[in-house]
Amino acid sequence: MRKILISAVACAVLAGCIQDAYTGERKASRAGVGAGVGAGVGAALGAIIGGDKTRKNALIGAGVGALAGGAVGAYMDAQERTLRRRLEADGVRVVREGDLIVLNMRDNVEFPSDSAMLQPRYEPVLASVAQVLSEYPKTYVDVIGHTDSMGSDAYNKTLSRRRAEAVSGFLAAQGVAPERLAVRGAGEDFPIASNQTAAGRQANRRVEIALSPIT
């Protein structure tokens, strides 16, 4: 499974294609090469991940230290092991690509159609996520919202951002430093299932969490 997911990332970055993280099926990407996104991972590489100077300075000002050199890999290794041990029994897929970790929340954080309300049944899993994030404070936390294909592209971008904000707000309420958190709305651009079925649309109404080191 990990090999399939890593292939999905590489495929998107190098060739603009999509490989489904769950079936291994290859499909054409709507976003193409420029976005640099693997549909199975659901998180963009580059501008959408990590921190700019303003974000980094805010974290340093809040007393969060940065990682350097060989400490980065060891830190992300330890965080990955803890995430897998605590979350995989709950069905959270922990994806590792280099120094990037993505928590694929399919089946764990999904939303009703046209809604950004976080369902109470998902809160225990997110509370477990928040606990691990608090134990490993030297990472940026990007929360990325997605929608199905119903509605206009502009509306779905806004809706997906609201979904990301709902999850980010919950994590902050659980003690994750707000300076670490950033939200992105990916809209309908990166489906992980067919939008032609009700089950597929439900799977696409999701949020994913991407972690990258503060260096």
Rank of each mutant, 00 (worst) to 15 (best):
I6V: 11
A8S: 15
V9A: 08
A10I: 09
A12M: 00
C17R: 15
C17M: 10
I18D: 07
Q19V: 15
Q19W: 00
D20R: 11
T23P: 11
T23Y: 13
K27A: 14
G34Y: 11
G38L: 05
A39C: 07
V41G: 04
G42N: 12
L45H: 13
A47N: 06
I48G: 10
L59T: 05
I60A: 15
A66K: 10
A71G: 15
Q79D: 05
R84E: 08
R86F: 10
A89R: 15
V92G: 08
V92K: 08
V92F: 06
V94T: 13
I101M: 05
L103T: 11
M105G: 09
F111N: 04
S113N: 05
D114Y: 10
D114R: 13
R121E: 14
Y122G: 08
L126N: 09
L126P: 00
L126V: 04
S128L: 02
A130K: 02
S134K: 07
Y136S: 02
D142Q: 02
H146L: 12
D148K: 09
D153M: 07
N156Q: 06
L159P: 01
S160T: 03
A164P: 01
I192Q: 15
I192G: 12
A199H: 11
G200D: 04
V207R: 10
E208S: 14
S212Q: 07
I214G: 00
